[in-house]
Design a protein around this nucleic acid. Structure first.
Lengths: 252, 252
DNA sequence: GACCTCTGTTGCGTATGTTGCAACGACTGT
DNA sequence: ACAGTCGTTGCAACATACGCAACAGAGGTC
């Protein structure tokens, strides 16, 4: 809607991937160098971008600053932190905390596993709802009407042979998740990895976020993964308590 | 230089502090609501901002995503990580990794101490050069001509009774730091806290970043702090080795 | 060391995109 | 049901951001 802003944001996205030169950027967004220069100057004034040497641009500190400032405003993140860090330390597996945003899942915290398996995730990264354990947990927590609405509206790109590909299947899976209180991603997102996830609840029992553990298949087979569920749930329970949850009324 | 972009970036900075409503923002930057609305919409399309409920705006996931993507491009950050994490775990004190940027210091990593002393720092936050241990280390690593240039150009706001307030004093301090190989901030930045810092070096012996330990004065007196220097230097040495540094030629 | 190329930078006129206005619509709370 | 608040739209006027073309400066090549 705002052209120059639109272009500037595209620039940022581009620069974030790697340092870029002026011409690179001009080519990428298809405008004249001078236009890019002016945008970059404004971005630079605000510290969103900085120059490296004479001809390379990198993201500046404002980016980190604002991001971390905003991450702190996710209360769940802070309250869940100790329990998840402990879970990560105890098991050595990668732990994620994720939240629902606009038809997708967003990772709001990550604890790297000890096994050097490169997982293509990152704080702030978005992931689909249909093939992630955290996605299932978050959607399963919603009223049935909402679930159906979402199941109808999202896409079902095939990521692996196990990926769920239809709304009907997805809704059935959500039902199972809601009953059991945890979700599984049996290599539905990435071939090598399977995950389990469980909800983190707040004061009124509402689901604030989902925490997951991701384990490479070479390390643990499906049954081994399921054996970790109690440990995960103990951690999410602890995280929930720190987030104000009390075990009366709802819960389970 | 670009008006709309300038306004949009100001909006982001504002929103980062706390969720804002449309009118709040319009007042803050002194433009019409409709203008703000259009900017926000563009920001929203790029996921830099998201709506919370119907009337509040928060930072969106792109912010986190880009920031973390870019943080990963600081190679020092990754290579220094294990050594600093270990230092933090061993001592329980707050550890920072910082880098020089444009007349200021920028924190690029932080390991929270076990003592619940609120430190007003954050990844991405900028701090002055004249009253921080990391600042001294980074500037002391530069050629004398550059040091003088910087000493002349920066401001010397008084933060505590101990703050250095003149270029001459600062240059003398830098000389000491360069000789010793580490810097001290004796409650020059914040009243309650004193810090020590040392450089992290790269392949050619050049200083990539500075690592510091911050300790509340109530926990440890000045001598106690200095007693930690060897431990800090062991950690920065380890971090340097991981960053490609080898102990020949330069070094010490 | 001189030439050439490549990249960043500036001034300027124009058209385009952006702005503010005012009226509308949706929602909240009383 | 009403008033007030806040978000949203269409439009016309204007300022702004755009592309162009020419300049400057650094790096590399012969």
């Amino acid at each position: 809607m705002s052209q120059s802003l639109d272009r500037a944001l595209t620039l940022l996205t581009s620069i974030a991937q790697d340092a870029r030169t002026l011409d690179d950027l001009a080519d990428e967004i298809g405008v004249h160098k001078s236009t890019v220069l002016r945008l970059l100057r404004t971005l630079e004034q605000h510290h969103f971008v900085r120059r490296e040497g004479a001809r390379h641009y990198r993201l500046g500190s404002a980016m980190f600053d604002l991001a971390n400032q905003a991450l702190d405003s996710f209360d769940v993140r802070r309250s869940a932190h100790p329990a998840l860090a402990a879970l990560n330390a105890r098991t050595g597996h990668t732990v994620h905390l994720a939240s629902y945003e606009d038809g997708e899942v967003v990772y709001i915290d990550k604890f790297e596993g000890r096994h050097s398996v490169r997982m293509y995730s990152r704080i702030g990264k978005r992931a689909p709802l249909h093939c992630t354990a955290v996605g299932k947990v978050l959607v399963a927590a919603m009223p049935v009407a909402r679930r159906e609405e979402i199941a109808r509206s999202i896409e079902y790109p095939v990521r692996t042979p196990n990926t769920i590909t239809t709304p009907a299947e997805y809704l059935a899976e959500l039902e199972r998740v809601a009953e059991r209180g945890y979700a599984v991603d049996n290599a539905e997102h990435e071939d090598f990895i399977h995950c389990i996830a469980a909800p983190v609840r707040g004061t009124g029992g509402e689901v604030l976020a989902a925490a997951s553990m991701s384990v490479p298949k070479v390390l643990l087979d499906y049954e081994g993964l399921l054996a970790l569920v109690p440990e995960l749930r103990a951690a999410t329970r602890e995280a929930s308590v720190h987030s104000g949850w009390t075990e009366n009324g709802k819960g389970h």
